[in-house]
Amino acid sequence: MISEINESIEVGAIFGEGVVSPVWFLWNGRRYKIERVTYRWKEKAGESLLHFFSVFDGKDTFELIYDSKLLRWTLGRVDVE
C-alpha cells in the first residue's frame, strides 16, 4: 500500500562523480539500510532541481527526494507490503 509521507529526513549518501547514492536514512526514530537504489530520475520544481530515488530496504520500497538547491532530503512516499 502506497502512503504519501513528505517528511524531511536525514540521509547518509555517497556523492560520487555526478552520481548521488543514498545508503541509509532515519525515519520515525529508526535507521533504514538501503539494499539497493531501484530507480532514479530528476524533476524541476521552480528554481530547485529535485533528484528522486526509489530505494528498497529488502522489505519495503521508499521514495527519497534530494533538493539540490536547498540541500535537503525528503521522504516522499512509502510502499509497504
Binding site: T38, Y39, S54, F56, D60, T61, D79, E81
Partner: peptide, 9 residues
C-alpha cells in the same frame, strides 16, 4: 515497466 523496476514489490 518503469514502476515494476522502481518498486520490486
Amino acid at each position: 515497466q518503469v514502476e515494476e523496476v522502481a518498486n520490486p514489490l
